[in-house]
C-alpha cells in the first residue's frame, strides 16, 4: 500500500525580508518519526511554521508537497484539512471560545474537508463522547473542555491541549514544536507516552526537541540537525543520543559556514508566536 509522503525541497523562508531557512530538504513518510534538533536560532520552529502556512513566514524558493500536491498554494486551513498539524511551542489563547466548541468546529472541518461554511457540525452527542474518551486517555479533567482555548492554561495544560487536538484531528503529519518544554518530569513522561500512543505508526511525526525523554518514548527513525537555516546532518537514533549527551560542539566545528550564519541570525530575535508562556 502506498503511504503518504511529505517532501520539502530546497526550501528558503524569510521573515520580514530576513532569510531564515536557506535550502532545507526533507522527505517523510507517514508512520516515520523524525527528530529535528539544533541550537537556538537554527530555524527549527521556522520550518514548522512554514510547513503549517503561517502568513509571516514567506517562502522565497523551493517546494513543499504532500503526495505530490503543492502545499504552498494552500492557506493554513486548507493544509490542516489536507492532514498537516502543528503542536505549537507557545499556543495563543482565544478568550471566550470554549475548547469543546473550538475543537468541534476544527474536527468537523478536518474530517469533512469539503464542508462549506455554515453547514452542519458533527453531532454534539457523538463529538462529546469521543472528546471525553480522548481526554480520559490523556488524563485530562472534563472541565477542561468548558474552559476557553488556552486562556489561563498552565504550561503543562497548554501542551496537553495541543496533544488533545492532535488526537482529535488525526493528521497525516504532525510537527511537535518543543511539546516537552516547560514541563516537569512527570508531565514530560505523560506527554511522551501520549504522543507515542496517538502518533507513532499512524502519523509522520516531526519532533522538535531539546530533551531525550520525548525521544525515548518516540525513538526517531531519522535525526536531522539544523544549523544556520539548513539541515547539515541526518542520522539515526544514535545521532539524537550523541547531540543530547555531547551538545552541538562537533556540529558547529564541522560546519563553520552554517555556524557563522546561525550566529548572524541569533543577533536578531527569531519571531515567535506572540503569546506569553504562563507557567
Amino acid at each position: 500500500m502506498a503511504t503518504d509522503l511529505l517532501t520539502i525541497t530546497d526550501l528558503h523562508v524569510s521573515v520580514d525580508d530576513k532569510p531564515i531557512l536557506r535550502g532545507v530538504n526533507l522527505r517523510m513518510q507517514r508512520g516515520e518519526t523524525h527528530a529535528l534538533m539544533g541550537p537556538n536560532g537554527s530555524g527549527k520552529s521556522t520550518l514548522g511554521l512554514a510547513l503549517m502556512g503561517h502568513p509571516k513566514y514567506v517562502v522565497t524558493q523551493g517546494a513543499i508537497e504532500l503526495n505530490g500536491v503543492d502545499l504552498l498554494a494552500m492557506e493554513a486551513d486548507a493544509r490542516a484539512r489536507a492532514g498537516i498539524f502543528m503542536a505549537f511551542q507557545r499556543p495563543v489563547a482565544i478568550p471566550g471560545v470554549k475548547m469543546a466548541d473550538f475543537l468541534r468546529h476544527a474536527t468537523t472541518n478536518v474530517r469533512f474537508p469539503d464542508r462549506k461554511e455554515g453547514e452542519q457540525l458533527i453531532p454534539m452527542k457523538d463529538f462529546r463522547k469521543e472528546l471525553r474518551a480522548k481526554m480520559d486517555h490523556l488524563r485530562m479533567d472534563v472541565e477542561f473542555a468548558r474552559r476557553y482555548v488556552n486562556d489561563g492554561f498552565s504550561g503543562g495544560e497548554m501542551k496537553r491541549a495541543e496533544i488533545l487536538q492532535m488526537a482529535m484531528l488525526q493528521p497525516k503529519f504532525a510537527i511537535l514544536d518543543e511539546t516537552d518544554s516547560g514541563l516537569d518530569a512527570d508531565a514530560v513522561r505523560l506527554a511522551s507516552e501520549s504522543i507515542a500512543e496517538i502518533g507513532r505508526n499512524n502519523m509522520g511525526l516531526l519532533i522538535i526537541t531539546h530533551h531525550d525523554k520525548l525521544l525515548e518514548h518516540n525513538p526517531p527513525d531519522f535525526t536531522h540537525v539544523m544549523l544556520g537555516g539548513r539541515i547539515v546532518e541526518t542520522g539515526g537514533v544514535e545521532l539524537a543520543a550523541e547531540l543530547y549527551s555531547q551538545g552541538y560542539d562537533r556540529i558547529r566545528r564541522t560546519y563553520p559556514e552554517a555556524e557563522a550564519e546561525n550566529r548572524a541570525m541569533l543577533d536578531h530575535d527569531e519571531p515567535q508566536l506572540s503569546a506569553v508562556e504562563r507557567e
Binding site: M52, G53, H54, P55, K56, E75, A76, D77, R79, A80, R81, F85, M86, F88, P91, V92, I94, F102, L103, H105, A106, T107, N109, V110, E117, Q165, L169, L273, S274, A275
Partner: peptide, 18 residues
Amino acid sequence: EEELIFYACSRGLTRREA
C-alpha cells in the same frame, strides 16, 4: 490579532470562521 486567526486556521477553520 493575526496570531489568533492563524492558530484557528491551523486547526482547519477558514479565515472567516476564525
